[in-house]
Structure formats: C-alpha cells, structure tokens
Amino acid sequence: MQPLPDELACEAIELELFVQAMHRRHGYDFSQYAPASLRRRVRQLAERLGCDSISALTGRTLHEPRLLPQLLEGLSVPVSDMFRDPAVFRALREQVLPLLASYPQINIWQAGCAHGEEVYSLAILLEEEGLYERSRIFATDLSANALRQAEEGIYPVREAQQWSRNYQAAGGTRSLVDYYSARYDLLKLDDRLRRNITFAQHNLASDRVFCEAHLVLCRNVLIYFSNPLQDHCLALFRDSLVRGGFLCLGMCESIDFAGNAGDFAAFDAGARIYRLAANTVAMAVP
C-alpha cells in the first residue's frame, strides 16, 4: 500500500477551512474543540451528507444554510443513557439533594443535555426525594435538533432494560416502568416529568450565564473541548453557581490542567462532584 503523507496534511487544512466557514457563515466557533474528536465528527458528517471530502462539506456549509441544524447536531451530540454511571446519581440523591433541600427554590442547569436522558433521570430523582415541585431544571444544548428530541422524551425501548438496572443501582425507590409507557419499539417518558424542565438553546463557547444555579451538571461535554474552552466553561459555571453550589462532571473528566480548577473543591471525588471552593465548609443558610 502506498503511504500518502500529504493526505493528512491536506485534511488538516480542510478541517481548518471548514471551522472557519462555520464561524464566519453561521457564527458558531468550533476552533476550541479538541481536534481528534472534531476531525472524526467532521469526517462522519461529510460521509453522512454524501460529500467525498471535507472541502465538499465546506462548500455545502457555505451555500446551503438549511443544513445548519444537521451540522450542529453532527458536531456536538454525544449519546447517553438514563442514570448513566448509577453511582453518580446515587451520590446526587444521597449527598447533594439533602443539602439543596434547604433552599426554597432549587435551580439546576444541565449544560449540554443532548437527547435529554440525564435530564429526565434528574427529574425522577427530584420527584422521588420530594423536591421536584420547587425545582426548575434548565436543560440546554447547542443543537436545536437534539433539544427537540429531548423535549419529546421518546427513546428506543431496547434501552429500557439497561436503564432500569441503572435506575435501581442509583437507588431508585420505585420501578422505572412507572415513568414511561412503551408502544411498539419506543418508550415515551411521562409528560409530567417535563413540567419543571425548560429546554433552551445555549452555546457554551459564546453564550453567557443566564441563571443562578444551585447545581450544574455538565457530564461528558467538556471532554470535547480544548483546555482554554474548558477553562472558559468552568468560569461560566462558577459565575452561575450560588455560594456553596455544586458542579457535577463526567466520571473520567479531568480538570487537572484547568487554570481555574482551584475555584472548585472536590465534594465526592469518585463521582466527580465539586463544590464552589469559597464555601466548602459551611453551607450558606438560604
């Protein structure tokens, strides 16, 4: 097989031009996304849209504005499960919610909610702990397509078994079946779960703080960002959190290289739950 040393160099240029096109044509800046995953996603997008190169995709990005929702979805949406990493949801239930219970109104921001599996998991936790009536969950994502799906709360029924196991392992007090109805090969979550969720488009790279949150969940989102953008997001979360507020990141995420990691103190290191550092000893009385 003939090695093609130039091909990778060309692709790197194509990738840069595509990122520029997204920024200048549509106002979305992906230049601070971590390159390996970005390259992979752009390659996949090109393939999915029938483009034989990234340059061809760039051409369509410039000339076919109706493609934008698809582009954003392809560039940003990972997959999750209900109660993914049950130990984390158990820690939220057993350690974090009892502390949040002292507030008359609880605001939770789920940043990068993708298709919403974890938003509804959170709603169930709050419901079962008797806190949902005074809670408001702001579920945001870059992708309007993803938000639309999240809002529907419809998922393939084949996931139900695994999700039920996760739910039980996360300390569920009922049965997950109580929260959905299954029809054909789909399951639909109970509409009532959505009553205190606000879905909204928000770009972590460019949009500002929009609420005062007691808990921010941002799991497996920053893993796609370079260090400077990770820093930027941590500052955004810091500015959004109340004194003593909580931040929950993905299980394998590291903030070892974040310039502002010192703003957060480990609350449950294993579950990657942090707390605003200034107030780690005493919880502010609401």
Binding site: A36, S37, R40, R41, P78, N220, I223, G250, C252, E253
Partner: peptide, 21 residues
C-alpha cells in the same frame, strides 16, 4: 482505554475521551 469511552490521541499526543455512539 477506560471502559465506556472511546479513547483518542490528540495531534499533540495527549489523551482525549469521547462518548460518541
């Protein structure tokens, strides 16, 4: 590679993870 994540190497030879499908 940790369980449940894709493992990638960045061009500057640092590890990255992904939860893509």
């Amino acid at each position: 590679a940790p369980t449940g994540y894709h493992l990638l190497v960045e061009p500057d030879r640092r590890f990255a993870l992904s939860t893509d499908p």
